[in-house]
Amino acid sequence: MRRSSALISTICAPALVLGCADDDDAELQVFAAASLHSVLAEIAEIYTEETGTEVQINAAGSSTLVEQLSHGAAADVLATADETTMEQAVESGLTSGDPEVFAANHLVLITPPGNPAEVQGLSDLQDSAVDTVVCTPQVPCGAATARLADSAEVGIQAVSEETSVTDVLGRVRSQEADAGLVYATDALQAVGEVEALELPGAAEDPNYYPVALLEGASSAEAGMEFIDFLLTNEQAQQILQEAGFTEVDR
């Protein structure tokens, strides 16, 4: 049963606009950043077990979610991959109550197995002989990349600036690129297919993942309860850390 609800959420995610969300079982609609999809599905399973409230997750890029919400999509909770996108939601009056940070994620350098271009650190990415792929500065992972490169005073010579972090992972995974910058959580998903290298300063300047109750929530109470669960439940926090997210001091 639990599986089937996760399956429905996966199938419905792209079709949400078409009204696929009208599921009587789902009492809680969670809009979550794509990078949160699998962890939140796992956390939601435990939450449903404990509270009996079914959770439906719609996963997409953070800015796509905010766009969908501002065009009238109905949901109870929003979790984004960075604070800037959440601020947009707050400014558009989509949220009710203040957003709270529940996890952090930082950039790591990934290479194909064996590190064919012998990349040792950020400064090696200045070499145009190394095919480096990064996120474009307009998206959260790209903004983090630009911050990191600036503070290290490194001018990265990228061959491609992808719109999504999964595309960066894909290019390194398929060995079409020698190096890429992705989140620690992404690198963990491709263990064995990519080698990850921690970068000095990256963990100290992470992306924060905020969660907020939405103004149009059909059940504010259930929404708050889920947010609390996400922030304080030990199992929930453990799932996040196993996926590569780091704990946030509150």
Partner: peptide, 27 residues
């Protein structure tokens, strides 16, 4: 183009790719 060529201003980022990218920050 997105899957094969990549996305780099002036090199591989065609108009449709630019639209897709702008949509992220500036609809």
């Amino acid at each position: 183009t997105l899957a094969f060529a990549g996305s780099m201003q002036g090199v591989t980022r065609t108009l449709p790719l630019e639209i897709y990218l702008q949509r992220e920050t500036d609809p």
